[in-house]
Design a protein around this nucleic acid. Sequence first.
DNA 1: GTCTATATAACGATAGAC
DNA 2: GTCTATCGTTATATAGAC
Lengths: 204, 204
Amino acid sequence: MTENETDTEQKIFEAACRIFEQKGFDGARMQEIADEADINKSMLHYYYRSKDKLFQKVYQKEMGRFLPVIFDLWNADLPLDKKIREVVEAYYAFLNENPRIAQFVIHEMNQNPERFQDFLAKLDLKVPQNFNRQIDREIKQENINEIDPRQLIISVVALTHFPVIARTMVKSINNFDDEAFQQFMEERKQFLVDFILNGINYQK
Amino acid sequence: MTENETDTEQKIFEAACRIFEQKGFDGARMQEIADEADINKSMLHYYYRSKDKLFQKVYQKEMGRFLPVIFDLWNADLPLDKKIREVVEAYYAFLNENPRIAQFVIHEMNQNPERFQDFLAKLDLKVPQNFNRQIDREIKQENINEIDPRQLIISVVALTHFPVIARTMVKSINNFDDEAFQQFMEERKQFLVDFILNGINYQK
DNA sequence: GTCTATATAACGATAGAC
DNA sequence: GTCTATCGTTATATAGAC
């Protein structure tokens, strides 16, 4: 019966992830999570004691998945143009598989900045030092404009993540259905790589 | 006594704006709004009947302020480089005066896409047709790369708005206090204008 | 219009049978 | 482990005195 235990617990957790991602902590209802998991509400308390503790688990999982992806590739040993393409594609792949995670991160981060800061500190993410040096070199060799690497990183994150976070607005304004939105985002991928490399005046 | 009536009603409304912006509909408490307005909780119901109706008013005010700003300047009769600078500066000015509005819009839009779509339809915002034509001309004259004007607009919104929405993350990652963040954003303004114009390969 | 007191409903959490 | 029934709290909302 160990399998059934694990199974129930996991069904609850996965349902909680979906509901918390959609509604946030304040908007989520324990009953709703129970319904989503197709499991009796008491089981949520049996396995996780409280809404708060269940949320903590979800929070750690989602933040722990989201944040490393943001930084992972910047330190890679790749030429700048290839790196930009890889980062954009990695962001796209991740956001495609996790369409609501960015929205969750943004909202819960703003609701409780201290908790976010504490969590970030524990993650011990590497500041992209290699990338800073790479940008320095490229500037000295006059391959790109003089830019602050931090401005570039946040710009790439913004350009890729914002349309996903603001998907409702992008769809409404352009009268996109889901399919048209998906196509728009696919076209955007190539646009972004060119836009970013031109943006820093990259000379091959 | 008409003055006192209006005064109380407005104090409530302004407090409600601040609380709903920070906490969202689900996270906001009527008692908290009453405290923020320094007014008895019953008065909220006396003037606005319900939390929902009070929120509707706030929603309409905030959305009605936010959305026009996004589109206003794109149709202006300005050369492209000047237009980009003006738009970026207009976005900056608005977000500086309303530091939490973008976060509010994003969250409530995602919580209820249908309501957002309905509201947007009623606003009857002009699609930036003039801007589309301007981009067409610039492409034909080979002043810029072949780009989709919709991709450019959303990119400019993303580059300016994302750091504000994700302010907590930007601050935490870079170990910025409020002052350092403000300076980073100020430096970013010039970075963005160059980055965007280079991004579309603008030739003066 | 403003206050206190209270009704009503929703939600998180627990007890206890099986 | 799982279910039903229910407790205790909190939140919205209203009634009624002033």
